[in-house]
Amino acid sequence: MNSSTASATSTAAPLARPATWQPVIELRGIEKVYQTKTIETVALNHVNLIIHKGEFVSVMGPSGCGKSTLLSIMGLLDEPTAGVVEIEGRAMQSYSDRELAALRNHKIGFVFQSYHLINDLSVLDNVELPLLYRPGVNGRQRRELAHTALDKVGLSSRTTHFPSQLSGGQRQRVAIARALAGRPELILADEPTGNLDSVMGEEIMELLLTLNREEGTTIVMVTHDEHMARRTERLIRFFDGSQVS
């Protein structure tokens, strides 16, 4: 137990405090070890972390310190080598495969560091993807939600393009729109502004802040930008797989 929750860094805008400090995700004693034939990498080492409902948390740290690994574990994409991940008070291990899929689909919007768009699908179809696996959403609703999300990231004029026809920044925005489309309660964004110019980056940051403020979306964002990180209510720093502040 080397650390509890880090202290929130003060931000410029006053943020709406959630009424209760309800934990969305709780990590306890998380370890992640990548084992390859020749080498064993400790990507996360005894991480304890609680993300509360309605929080906007940024994660910073040098390259290779385990930020993406942390996010993938919070996003239920990967399992820790040791420790407990609790979602809504229940350990991840106790969920069935099906329940985990439903959680990923309904609760979580994930923005991958390297976008991960499906090249064989148009921008619109890529953004619709999470909704495809949500029962009870019909084709028209899917399209509407996807259009709304693309509108928010300023890409409504590119819906029929294919990923290969887009710039890096545009792809990143498609990836963001995809994470937003399903209106998840929790957004996990791995360097969402990493490939955007300062104006576009600013717009995305505003978008995330608005979501957090107005819809109460919980956001965990990995960033290398001190300036952006300081605008969130809480900043967590990592170094070599451990939380340092």
């Binding site: 495969d97 990923r104 689909n105 991960h116 499906i118 993807l129 495809l132 696996y133 995809r178």
Partner: peptide, 16 residues
Amino acid sequence: RAEIGLRRAMGATGPD
């Protein structure tokens, strides 16, 4: 594989 992993990440089940 990447596409399949992505679909799983987006909430597709194995049977899906």
